[in-house]
Write a protein that binds this DNA or RNA. Structure first.
Lengths: 111, 111
DNA sequence: ATGATATAACACCTTTTGGTTGTATGTCAA
DNA sequence: TTGACATACAACCAAAAGGTGTTATATCAT
């Protein structure tokens, strides 16, 4: 699973649902691998591979803290996605803004 | 290449550079497969497969026009990406806005 | 010193991806 | 009606993606 530390492709990195969830977990806190793994039904090895993909897309960075390695998120590479999106949507900005607005205000369907 | 018409995953669909480029080509115009193929170094069959992925992610839709099939873009599914991005960036909005601003104003590096 | 923890490093497996070629089918134009 | 064009469909292939398990190594607590 991307064993060679190559391809820093952000789009590729966020293509996997597990990796997106990992990212969300690391938004506001720094977590060790074991704790991240606990939230998923897959093996630690698999999680580590996902972490490697995220890391060489520079979306997360890890530091060793004693016997554990703690990861934190780095949002900067997401700017590339944001830009691409803005460019791709530039002709329908009205329609899309409307859509987003609708969804955002439907979070916890208050009747 | 996603032969079965399944997985309408938008993130997956835009993960491939070729597919992203196809999308950009179809923003403002409707194009036949042959014309799309002409812009890439790969075979028409390969392009068609990419089109299928984009189509069942509902990012494009095709209609037959005589002997050719013309595709056009549909931006709505991108809203999901947009939302996710907004959520993932919610703690760093300042930093990211700054970044984007910088890049956008560096398009054709005017000295 | 010893055992439990946390990670690292391998080797291996299966399915999906991205690509190829070849053959058939429908459609326009002369 | 006969090509030339545009697409459709099928079979095949190599490599990457996503996963598994096993074994080793460092570190903390007792």
């Amino acid at each position: 699973m991307a064993q060679p530390a190559e391809k820093p492709d952000v789009f590729q990195a966020i293509a996997d649902p597990t990796r997106r969830e990992v990212l969300l977990m690391l938004i506001d806190k720094e977590l060790p691998i074991s704790e991240i793994t606990a939230h998923f039904p897959i093996s630690r090895t698999a999680v580590v591979k996902h972490l490697l993909v995220l890391e060489n897309a520079r979306l997360i960075s890890g530091r060793k803290a004693g016997r554990e390695k703690r990861y934190r998120m780095n949002p900067e590479p997401l700017a590339e996605v944001s830009q691409w999106l803005a460019y791709a949507e530039r002709f329908w900005s009205n329609k899309l803004s409307m859509l987003q607005h609708l969804v955002e205000h439907d979070d916890k369907k208050q009747p």
